[in-house]
Amino acid sequence: MIEVANLRKRYRRRNVLNGVSFAVEKGQIACLIGLNGAGKSTVLKAIMGLTPVQEGTIRIDGRPVGKETYEKVSYIPDRLTVPPYMKLWEGLRFMQDFYRSWNPERARELMAFFGLDAQERVGNLSKGTAAKFNLVLGLAPDSDYVLMDEPFSGIDLFSRENLAGIFSSGLIGSRGVLLTTHEVDEIERLIDKAILLRGGTVVRSFDCERVRDEEGKSVVDVMREVLLA
């Protein structure tokens, strides 16, 4: 389980995170939803130890973030994470060199799933293709959790549907997923849990099926109610 408790972060005299708490279990697909600037990406970065927080704790299966947790949690940011001079296959080999959890079999499967050419240079990838390659890098390891920052941004509609497919495919498997988005429509039916973030605080966190069941509301309905109120 990824447990985030009472995260507080100030940056340039602004409270970017203002006491954020939530948990994501293994096998669960959770989504951090918020408008731009709500602090979604910052939460993911904080979980990966890529930005300091003033207060709060982050535990992954009970342990603090450190080099061991980087094998357990893979992170798919919204930008390139391998040097642009590398060919895609060199990027994959780099990952295999460093991560014990890297699964070359799954990497091959994913490259085929997204139709990527291993001979292409990373620096030459279009925004959408780069996003797909990022997904390959993040999903290929046998990690227990996957964090994805805006996996749908910059990707055309056709590929988006394809992308949504990975959540219901075996490529995610029984991992826990935490993703961020500001457009819920595509993935509304794919997520188990929605965590609504506004102004650096969790304003509501709920089980999507239960809200449909009990209140007859879609995630978008709740989002409109809570975030645009």
Binding site: Q28, I29, S168, G170, R189, I191, E209
Partner: peptide, 17 residues
């Protein structure tokens, strides 16, 4: 359950349920 989740593009947990 996995196959139906993939075919209907839904969450495997939902298919399970």
């Amino acid at each position: 359950r996995r196959e139906i989740a993939a075919a209907l593009k839904i969450n495997p947990n939902t298919a399970q349920k």
